[in-house]
Each structure stands twice: as structure tokens, then as C-alpha cells.
Simulated scan of single mutants.
Amino acid sequence: MAGDRPGPRARRGSGGARPGDLGATRLPRRRREEDPMRAFDALPAPLRRWLAEAARPWSSASCRRIWRRAMARGESVEAALARLTRAERRALMRDAMAPGAPPEIRSPVASTLRARA
């Protein structure tokens, strides 16, 4: 009977997000006002490629902000991508050093930083 089963939200856990959807991160999650797929599709191709291989979940808005700032300063595409990689490295380090961060976060952070260096 339908009344015996928990509703969809109850099965997924608090907040409606399934565990693991965003990877192991202790950084705060925020609700977005825009359609994430439409926002992603509107990004420049090099930025979309960078995002597809990013080590952490990024919002299109935060990547677009970093990209536009770099472009406004007259930086090349390569310099803008390097700026994004540095921002990602800082976020990974903050995540790994957060109080109570589990050891499984620290190990992937170290390997990701070595791979992107």
C-alpha cells in the first residue's frame, strides 16, 4: 500500500539531495536561482571543458565570475583557466583542512593537487 512507504523526500534524506551527489565536501551548499544546465550551456567552451574535469562541484555562476574577471583584465584563455585551477586548489585545501574532515577527503585532495600542479 502506498501509505506504508515513506515519501520520496523521506527516502532521500534531509534536504532532498542524495548523499554523494556533490562528492565529499564540507563546504557549504547553496540553493541556486538559475537553471544549472542552461547556465552551464551558456559558458564559453574552454570553461565548460575545464568544469567537466574539475575535482570539486562548481557552480556555473562562480566559474563565470572568475572567468569574466580574468577576461576583463585582458588575460588569455590559458591564464583564466590557470586562475580557475588556483581557485580550485584553494577550495580543496579549505575543504581538507575543515574541522572534522574525514581522512578519505585528505587523500584525494593530495592526489588531485599533485595531478594539477
Results as ranks from 00 to 15, higher is better:
Arg18Trp: 04
Arg73Tyr: 11
Ala10Tyr: 01
Gly13Lys: 02
Ala45Gln: 15
Thr25Trp: 02
Arg89Glu: 15
Ala45Tyr: 10
Glu53Asn: 11
Arg73Asn: 13
Trp67Tyr: 00
Ala70Pro: 00
Leu51Asp: 00
Arg73Gln: 12
Glu34Lys: 14
Leu22Val: 06
Ala54Lys: 06
Glu34Gly: 08
Leu51His: 04
Arg12Tyr: 08
Arg38Trp: 03
Arg68His: 07
Ser60Thr: 04
Leu51Thr: 01
Pro46Gln: 01
Leu51Ala: 11
Arg69Gln: 14
Pro57Gly: 02
Arg30Trp: 02
Arg73Cys: 15
Asp21His: 08
Ala39Phe: 02
Leu81Trp: 06
Arg90Asp: 12
Arg83His: 11
Asp4Tyr: 02
Ser59Lys: 00
Arg73Pro: 04
Leu81Thr: 11
Arg26Pro: 00
Ala72Ile: 06
Met37Val: 14
Arg49Met: 05
Pro46Ala: 09
Gly23Arg: 06
Gly7His: 12
Arg18Gln: 10
Gly3Val: 10
Ser76Phe: 07
Phe40Thr: 10
Pro6Lys: 02
Gly16Met: 06
Pro8Asp: 15
Gly23Ser: 01
Arg86His: 11
Glu53Trp: 08
Ala82Thr: 14
Arg48Gln: 14
Pro28Ile: 10
Arg12Thr: 11
Leu92Met: 13
Ser59Gly: 12
Ala55Phe: 01
Ala72Asp: 12
Leu47Ala: 10
Asp21Pro: 01
Arg83Val: 13
Ser14Pro: 08
Met71Gly: 01
Arg90Trp: 03
Leu81Gln: 03
Leu81Arg: 09
Pro28Asn: 04
Arg31Met: 14
Met93Ile: 13
Trp67Arg: 05
Leu51Cys: 08
Ala70Asp: 12
Asp41Phe: 07
Gly13Arg: 04
Ser14Ile: 04
Glu34Met: 10
Arg90Val: 13
Ala24Phe: 05
Ala82Gln: 05
Arg9Glu: 15
Arg26Ala: 12
Glu34Val: 14
Ala52Pro: 10
Pro6Ile: 01
Ala70Ile: 09
Arg86Phe: 09
Ala54Trp: 03
Glu53Arg: 11
Ala10Cys: 08
Glu78Ser: 15
Thr25Ser: 14
Ala55His: 07
Gly74Ser: 12
Ala24Met: 09
Pro19Arg: 03
Arg18Ser: 05
Ala52Tyr: 05
Met1Ile: 13
Gly20Thr: 02
Arg69His: 08
Pro6Cys: 02
Ala10Ile: 07
Ser76Arg: 07
Glu33Tyr: 02
Arg5Cys: 01
Cys63Thr: 11
Arg29Glu: 00
Ser59Met: 05
Trp67Ala: 07
Arg30Ile: 02
Arg89Met: 14
Ser62Leu: 01
Cys63Ser: 10
Ser60Phe: 02
Pro44Ala: 03
Arg69Thr: 15
Ala72Arg: 15
Pro19Lys: 03
Met37Pro: 01
Arg48Val: 10
Gly7Arg: 09
Leu84Asn: 00
Arg90Leu: 10
Ser59His: 04
